[in-house]
C-alpha cells in the first residue's frame, strides 16, 4: 500500500510553450477541404421527411387496398383476371394503384437502404447490396407502371 505520487504535467514536461505551440488536431467531424461536396446536402433529412409523409398516405392506400382485395366481398376468392379488369376500367383505381406502387417502392427502398447502412459494415458489401436494391426497386417501379398503363382487358 505505497502511496504513489505523480508529478503534475507542466509545460516543461510537454515541451510546448508560446514559441513552440502544440500541433492543431482537426476535430474528427469537422468539414475540411477534403469533405466531399456531395455530403453538403440535406438528403437524409428529406429522406426522413419522405418516410413520414409517404407513410401517412400509404396507411390509407395500402389498408384500402387490403380491405378491397382480402376482406370485402368474399376475400381472396373473387380475385382473378376479370376482377382486375373491372377495377382498372376506372381511372380512379388506376391512379390509386400507381401512386401506391411508387410510394410503397420508394418507401421500402429507403427503409432497406437504412438497414443496409446499419448492418453491412464493409464498404464493398454496402455498395453491392445497394446496387442490387436500387436495381430491384427501379425494375419494380418500371414494370408496375408499364403494367398499369398498358393493361388490356381484351388481351384474349
Amino acid at each position: 500500500m505505497s502511496a504513489e505520487t505523480t508529478t503534475p504535467a507542466s509545460d516543461s514536461v510537454t515541451g510546448y510553450d508560446v514559441d513552440h505551440p502544440a500541433p492543431v488536431i482537426e476535430p474528427p467531424r469537422a468539414r475540411t477541404r477534403k469533405t466531399p461536396r456531395s455530403t453538403r446536402t440535406n438528403f437524409e433529412m428529406y429522406g426522413w421527411l419522405f418516410m413520414r409523409l409517404s407513410g401517412v398516405l400509404l396507411v390509407v392506400l395500402v389498408l384500402g387496398h387490403l380491405l378491397i382485395q382480402l376482406v370485402l366481398d368474399g376475400g381472396v376468392t373473387k380475385i382473378g383476371f376479370a376482377f382486375v379488369a373491372g377495377r382498372w376500367a376506372s381511372p380512379f383505381w388506376q391512379t390509386w394503384d400507381l401512386i401506391m406502387l411508387w410510394l410503397a417502392t420508394l418507401h421500402g427502398a429507403n427503409g432497406l437502404r437504412t438497414i443496409i447502412n446499419d448492418y453491412a459494415e464493409r464498404d464493398n458489401t454496402r455498395l453491392w447490396l445497394k446496387a442490387l436494391l436500387y436495381t430491384a426497386a427501379g425494375f419494380t417501379i418500371v414494370l408496375g407502371t408499364l403494367v398499369i398503363f398498358t393493361f388490356d382487358p381484351n388481351i384474349r
Binding site: A82, L101, L143, L146
Partner: peptide
C-alpha cells in the same frame, strides 16, 4: 408486382 404483371401475359397465366 411480378405476379400482377402476368395480366399482361394472359388471363390464364394470371
Amino acid at each position: 408486382v411480378l405476379d400482377t404483371s402476368l395480366v399482361r401475359v394472359s388471363p390464364e397465366a394470371y
